[in-house]
Design a protein around this nucleic acid. Structure first.
Lengths: 147, 147
DNA sequence: TGAAATAAGTTTCACTTGTAACTATAATTA
DNA sequence: TAATTATAGTTACAAGTGAAACTTATTTCA
């Protein structure tokens, strides 16, 4: 067996995926339990908070979700009364999405939980380590994004 | 709006998940297309290569997969003739799993593709950066593993 | 012993997700 | 301007996934 044999525990894509899965599960617990929000729905709420009046396609761009996932999550949010969907008068194919008052309220309740979780996660790293990790993550991401 | 508002593009769990998803998709292409192997199946092959004669439960431990996923992936591999499943004579509930000759052949074909992909991924980082990223990843993983 | 509890693995059911087909509207161009 | 092409979003179908129930085998301990 060659000495560059494949050892999953050392294989970086696998380790990255392992870490990410744990973190995603923990985060999902924050919104799924008490609030009944899925990860996709949460991502959309966070985007509508920053960018009101955007369309489903724009949500898709900003969240890297495909349009079917966006459609389903937006439907779920509308059904729960957290998002309001209007038809654009400029282009009647497009939707114009916004959080409702109730949506903003829920968003405001979940946001601190999520931010606290991120803090608790990152407090194991020193400021220098965090900054480095940040840069390396960016570097890798820019690298893999070039198809 | 508070200044520690939630901005997904800066939110580390989101960025980690984004990077991981791209990498996982690319990797999956390496085995799914030509070889018809799923990511789960591939993980199991890689484990059986290093640890012959293990049981489904042991595969589960080593891959962090749940037992249902292991059961299904092993069934798929047996059906394709890549893995051989015997009943343990010491404990007839347990299975004893091994790659077949054909399984080893396929494994040997996929392995270099996967290793090359990892190399192409990491060659954007200097040896120092890589070593740092490695350490930080470990540190974060150990941190989140403590429930 | 033998009844109850535990363990390995599979099957089932409900839910999620991805791909492709479809509907409705808008833009293009012959 | 009418026919074609492209776009936004939804629906339908198939495949994947997770939780719980189930089957068979083993262990525990009264």
């Amino acid at each position: 067996m060659s000495d560059n044999d494949l050892v999953l525990e050392n294989f970086l894509p696998y380790r990255l995926s392992y870490l990410t899965n744990i973190i995603s599960r923990r985060l999902a617990r924050l919104y799924s339990g008490e609030f009944g929000i899925t990860a996709h729905e949460w991502k959309i709420l966070a985007n509508l908070n920053r960018h009101p009046d955007i369309s489903a396609a724009e949500v898709g761009e900003k969240t890297a979700m495909d349009k079917v996932a966006v459609s389903r999550a937006v439907s779920g949010l509308c059904y729960k009364g957290l998002v309001d969907r209007k038809i654009s008068q400029q282009d009647r194919r497009r939707s114009v999405l916004n959080m409702t008052a109730e949506g903003k309220k829920i968003y405001g309740q979940i946001k601190p939980l999520v931010i606290d979780y991120e803090k608790s996660l990152l407090n194991i790293l020193s400021p220098q380590e965090l900054s480095l990790f940040d840069q390396l993550l960016d570097k890798l991401t820019r690298h893999v994004e070039t198809d």
